[in-house]
Each structure stands twice: as C-alpha cells, then as structure tokens.
Amino acid sequence: MTFDYSYYNYKNQTVDQSNRYSITDASLFYQKEDSPWNFKITAQNLTDETFKQSNSFSDYLISDTRTYIMPRIILFGIGYKL
C-alpha cells in the first residue's frame, strides 16, 4: 500500500490572496503467495481539488497562474503472470 498526501498553503500578502489545497493519492496491491493473479486499485486526487493558483508581482511583470488538476480517478487492475 502506498499513500501520498501533499498540503499547500499559498499566500500572497501583497494582494491579500490565499489558496489552500491538498492532493492525495493512494494505491493498494494484492497478490497471494504462489499465485499468478494480482489485483491493484489506485485512486488519484481523492480530495477532488479542481485547480491550484499562484501569482507574482514585480516592477516589470504581473503574473497569475491557475493550473487545473485532473478530477478524481479510481482505477482497478487485474494482472496475470504467465
């Protein structure tokens, strides 16, 4: 089993903007001893976040970036080793 959790707390005090989001992925793999069959279930973006945003300001450039995140995905896999 694998589990990955990332929490982001973005804050731009210049324009009083904050953005909090978390990305969670998990995976579970099972194979019985001496069996050619295996099973795997994988889930991505369990918190179902839609985007992450950041911005920056300087004397010459103003930048606002919004990155869209893939929706929650759950995959189930079955494998057989010949």
Results as ranks from 00 to 15, higher is better:
M1R: 04
M1E: 07
T2D: 12
F3V: 15
D4G: 04
D4Y: 05
S6D: 08
S6M: 10
S6Q: 12
S6I: 11
Y7R: 10
Y7I: 11
Y8W: 07
Y8A: 07
Y8T: 14
N9L: 07
N9M: 05
N9K: 11
Y10I: 11
K11R: 14
K11N: 10
K11T: 09
Q13M: 09
Q13Y: 10
T14S: 11
T14Y: 11
T14I: 14
T14C: 01
V15Y: 05
D16E: 13
D16N: 15
Q17S: 08
Q17N: 09
S18F: 08
N19A: 06
N19L: 05
R20L: 04
R20F: 01
Y21A: 01
Y21H: 08
Y21N: 03
Y21E: 01
Y21R: 02
Y21K: 01
I23M: 12
I23P: 00
T24L: 15
D25L: 05
A26C: 06
A26Y: 04
A26I: 13
A26L: 13
S27L: 14
S27Q: 14
S27A: 15
S27N: 11
L28N: 00
L28H: 00
F29V: 13
Q31A: 11
Q31G: 04
K32S: 05
D34C: 02
D34V: 09
D34T: 12
S35R: 04
S35F: 02
P36H: 02
W37A: 11
W37L: 15
W37T: 03
N38W: 08
N38E: 07
N38T: 08
N38G: 06
N38R: 13
N38H: 10
F39Y: 15
F39G: 06
T42R: 12
Q44W: 01
Q44P: 00
N45C: 07
L46H: 03
T47S: 08
T47R: 08
D48I: 07
D48V: 06
D48P: 02
E49N: 10
F51T: 14
F51Q: 14
K52D: 07
K52Y: 09
Q53A: 12
S54Q: 10
S54Y: 06
S54D: 05
S54T: 11
N55D: 15
N55P: 00
N55W: 01
S56N: 09
S56Q: 05
F57V: 06
F57H: 04
F57N: 04
S58A: 03
S58E: 03
S58H: 02
D59I: 05
D59S: 11
D59V: 06
Y60A: 10
Y60T: 15
Y60I: 13
L61N: 09
L61M: 10
L61S: 09
I62Q: 08
I62D: 07
I62T: 10
D64Y: 11
T65K: 10
T65S: 10
R66D: 03
R66L: 09
T67L: 13
T67W: 00
Y68C: 05
Y68T: 12
I69H: 01
M70V: 11
M70K: 15
P71A: 07
I73P: 00
I73A: 08
I74V: 15
I74D: 01
I74N: 02
L75H: 03
G77V: 04
I78V: 14
I78D: 01
I78N: 00
G79Q: 04
G79A: 07
Y80G: 02
Y80S: 02
Y80F: 15
Y80I: 11
K81L: 12
L82A: 07
L82R: 03
